[in-house]
Simulated assay, not measured.
Amino acid sequence: MLSDFDSPKPAETMTTAAVEVTVPDDVSDSQPVAPAIPPSSPVPATPAPTPSHTLIPPAKTRPTLPSAPGFITLLGDTLNDAFFYRSEYSNPTGHYGGDWSRDNIGQTAEGADLDVRRHPSRSGPYTGGEMKTLKTYGYGRYEVVMRPAKGSGLVSSFFTYTGAYEGNPHDEIDIEFLGLDTSRIHFNYFRNGKTGESATFDLPFDAAEADHLYAFEWAPEGITWYVDGEPYYKTVEGDAYLPTTPGSVIFNAWTGKPFMSAWHGKPTFESGAAAHYSCVSFSPMGEETRACSDLFLPRRPSTSHALTAQLSQQPTP
């Protein structure tokens, strides 16, 4: 069981601002909706150019994970092949309904468009778009500004992942949208291939109509998911399914093999439907770094230490 939050109030209109993108120089090879308590009020942002996110300071006795440094990337400025891998490979097994193709990743001044096309491939009758970091990341805050693709059969995701291909157990933390109904958001997580308590929430908007900020904060004590700076969901203390292995940051747009239709809907989407990603960032636990929320939220969100303390548990309907 997980602890849930009150249904957050509709988010304020977001604004964007230009910022110099900082990318590390070195590169390695490589469902239920239920209310509980109101979120804390955000703290007004200051105009200072210093980083504005301070995650829970790690105590000496708290577990740590290896992690690459924090980063922020504005995808309208660069797709940066020295930092992100634009996937180009087949998916003959598993749930994806086609190959990943670099041709399905386009760039505009506003960000990256990852589209899904009705195009025969080695893995099925479709192709999708995916980008992933070359480095891996541990405890900290992960943020994305995005608009999911709309249309039955489509899935738009932002997540961390590691697995057998990297010689690791399957650990994962997800934010997902189904194009069948983009007014809902889905959260999930895995440890060693076993999923924890997934959750689905109704949003006060259609996510496919405008950019919004989505995030999750991963700490040794648990994971908290956010929408436009407001906490939506948190794992309970002692959850046995919390991931423990650093993973790549991945975002993609895809449709699945026929057996996936019961979940994401029949693939009746228009070919070329795209998920749009404007900003991706990671702030390591206990460090202050620039983040997407500094640019896309009018007010600074509070840290999870205040937001998630002593949450009540409520039965789901």
Rank of each mutant, 00 (worst) to 15 (best):
305 H>T: 12
298 P>K: 03
300 R>M: 12
133 T>F: 07
292 C>G: 13
134 L>I: 13
98 G>Q: 09
76 G>C: 08
176 E>L: 09
37 I>R: 12
92 P>A: 03
31 Q>C: 12
213 L>M: 01
291 A>I: 13
196 G>C: 04
294 D>A: 10
81 D>L: 11
141 R>E: 05
275 A>I: 01
51 P>S: 14
188 N>K: 05
281 S>I: 07
168 N>G: 01
24 P>G: 11
70 G>I: 08
297 L>Q: 03
212 H>P: 00
177 F>C: 11
133 T>V: 12
154 L>F: 10
176 E>N: 10
3 S>A: 12
253 A>S: 15
26 D>I: 12
200 T>I: 07
274 A>H: 12
293 S>P: 03
34 A>D: 02
245 T>H: 03
89 Y>Q: 14
115 D>L: 06
44 P>M: 04
185 I>Y: 08
302 S>H: 02
62 R>Q: 13
49 P>V: 01
188 N>V: 09
255 T>A: 04
266 K>G: 04
309 A>H: 09
32 P>G: 11
202 D>P: 01
271 S>E: 08
27 V>M: 14
140 G>A: 14
280 V>R: 08
249 V>E: 00
222 G>Y: 02
218 W>I: 01
192 N>M: 02
232 Y>T: 09
196 G>P: 02
259 F>L: 01
63 P>M: 01
239 D>G: 05
303 T>K: 06
143 E>C: 08
